[in-house]
Each structure stands twice: as structure tokens, then as C-alpha cells.
């Protein structure tokens, strides 16, 4: 198969192969190029998904970077375009532009412990990096996934988390913000899981993704454990339009999130987190 030719501003027609409902408002789509071919990307990158007649939104890729035959996106229906995406079925078509943006530097963490800290749907953009770590397990020290969700019913990729936890070579800790007596797992914020440690902070690379406040506190908890700022990576979300740094919609300080991000090294943006209303 040949690679799909891509002009960065021109959507390519993709067909929805499969739709899976993850949560009441979150779903995962598997897409294949209508013209055939493969789609390659790096963990952490995103695509602009175009619902014809409705609009275009940036969505992180949530599939396995090792599998180029299918493009996987996990989306929460919150606005007009994402709700429109939610109404599509297998066999329908959408336009895809991308992949765009910077990637999780998962390969530069070879030889280190890796800690993935995710909150809510923030697990989706981290999943490709987790797949990479699992596919190259021997290249890493400890691999830990620390995941926080609102309630037990809101845990994304639940079966997959259970499967990962069943492996003997990675640690998966899940916590929820609140639960009833039926839940026998952790309750509390995801930063509490960071505080428990279990990794070597001096030889750890951490990847954090979730709501901005969670990332701020997550990075701070990692720092408190002794993880250096320059080995913590975060993924930002902003209102993106063009995807290539032209329109300026996603400007964050001196950065364009679509082009300079979404993945940033924490020490390069930590000060921006302290700027109000940015």
C-alpha cells in the first residue's frame, strides 16, 4: 500500500469503519482512507476532523502508532461539531487533515522510568504513547499509568486499563473523584497517585494530559516527588482552526498550540500556567 498523499490544508476523505461508545458522551471512531493507503502519525499528534456542512475540530489521535491501517480518534461530544461526529455511523465519511503538532517524546525516554498521568478524556491523547511503551517494553524501566476520572462510570478505556493492569510489567493505578460503596478502588485526585510514587524520580520522564488545572497540579506533584521540570511533558488544548500556525486562534503566550504544541516540555511553559486569563 502507498501512503496517502497529504496537502496540509486539504482534507482527505476517510470512511468510518467502526464506532464504539466509550462513555455516555464519549466515543471512539476507527477510520480508513477512502482512497486506500496508510496513515502514519506520532503519539500525541492530532488531526482536524471535518464533518461536512457542520465544521472542523482538532481531535487527538488515540490509536496505536504501530498500526497504520486504521486511524483512531476518541472524542467527547461537547459542541456542535463533536455532537455531529457523534451522530455519524459506520460507512459515513468525514474529511481529515493532519497529522499536526508536536509529539510525546516517548523514544527519548528509553532507559528511563515512564509515568503517564491522565485525567478524564486526557487518557485518549496519551494512549498512543502508552501503546508505544508497551510495544517497546524492554527499552524502559518502570512503566506507570496513573489515571483519574470523575466517577467509576466515567473511566475511559476501562477494559483496556484492566488488561494493562493484568500485565506483569506495568503498574496501572486508577482513582475517581467520588464513588459509592460499590467501588473498592482509590478515591481522590490523581495527584495523590503521583504522591505515592513507585518510580525513580531522578530517572523518570512523565507525560501529563488532562484538564489544564489537573496538568498544573499534576506537574507540581511530580516536581514535589523530585522529577525535573525538563522531563515532564504536557499536552495543551486550545481553540484551533487552521492547524498549521497561520490563523492565530490557538495562540498561547508566544506559542501557537497547533504548531509549537500540543505537546510542550513543562519547563518551557510553566510560567504561562501562572498567567491569568491566558
Amino acid at each position: 500500500m502507498t501512503a496517502v498523499p497529504r496537502d496540509p490544508m486539504l482534507p482527505v476523505l476517510f470512511r468510518i469503519e467502526k464506532v464504539r461508545r466509550d462513555l455516555s458522551d464519549t466515543f471512539t471512531m476507527e477510520l480508513v482512507p477512502e482512497a486506500g493507503g496508510e496513515f502514519s502519525f506520532k503519539p500525541g499528534q492530532f488531526n482536524m476532523l471535518y464533518v461536512f456542512g457542520v465544521g472542523e475540530i482538532p481531535i487527538s489521535i488515540s490509536g496505536d502508532p504501530g498500526d497504520r491501517s486504521v486511524l483512531v480518534h476518541t472524542t467527547r461530544a461537547v459542541g456542535a461539531v463533536s455532537s455531529a461526529l457523534d451522530s455519524l455511523k459506520a460507512g459515513d465519511q468525514i474529511g481529515v487533515r493532519g497529522p499536526y503538532g508536536t509529539a510525546w517524546p516517548i523514544e527519548s525516554a528509553y532507559g528511563q522510568d515512564v509515568v503517564f498521568v491522565a485525567g478524564g478524556v486526557g487518557l485518549a491523547p496519551l494512549r498512543p504513547a502508552i501503546y508505544h511503551a508497551m510495544n517497546n517494553r524492554e527499552r524502559y524501566g518502570k512503566v506507570m499509568v496513573l489515571y483519574g476520572a470523575r466517577t467509576p462510570e466515567d473511566i475511559l478505556f476501562k477494559k483496556e486499563l484492566e488488561r494493562w493492569r493484568g500485565r506483569f510489567d506495568m503498574d496501572v493505578l486508577v482513582t475517581v473523584d467520588r464513588a459509592t460503596g460499590k467501588w473498592s478502588g482509590n478515591v481522590g485526585v490523581v495527584t495523590n497517585l503521583v504522591a505515592r510514587g513507585g518510580f525513580d524520580p531522578l530517572h523518570t520522564t512523565a507525560f501529563v494530559c488532562g484538564p489544564e488545572v489537573m496538568m498544573r497540579y499534576g506537574a507540581s506533584a511530580l516536581e514535589k516527588k523530585g522529577v525535573a521540570r525538563d522531563t515532564i511533558w504536557i499536552s495543551m488544548e486550545r481553540n484551533m482552526k487552521c492547524g498549521v500556525g497561520l490563523c492565530g486562534h490557538c495562540q498561547w503566550g508566544s506559542h501557537f498550540v497547533c504548531k509549537d504544541g500540543p505537546v510542550f516540555r513543562y519547563d518551557s511553559v510553566a510560567d504561562l500556567f501562572q498567567v491569568r486569563e491566558l
Partner: peptide, 13 residues
């Protein structure tokens, strides 16, 4: 922080 979900709400499609 993680916003809505949980109870199967009808997402306005």
C-alpha cells in the same frame, strides 16, 4: 475537573 459524563445523558445531537 473532568466535566460531564457519568449518567447516560442524552447528548443533543
Amino acid at each position: 475537573l473532568y466535566g460531564p459524563s457519568a449518567k447516560p445523558e442524552k447528548v443533543k445531537k
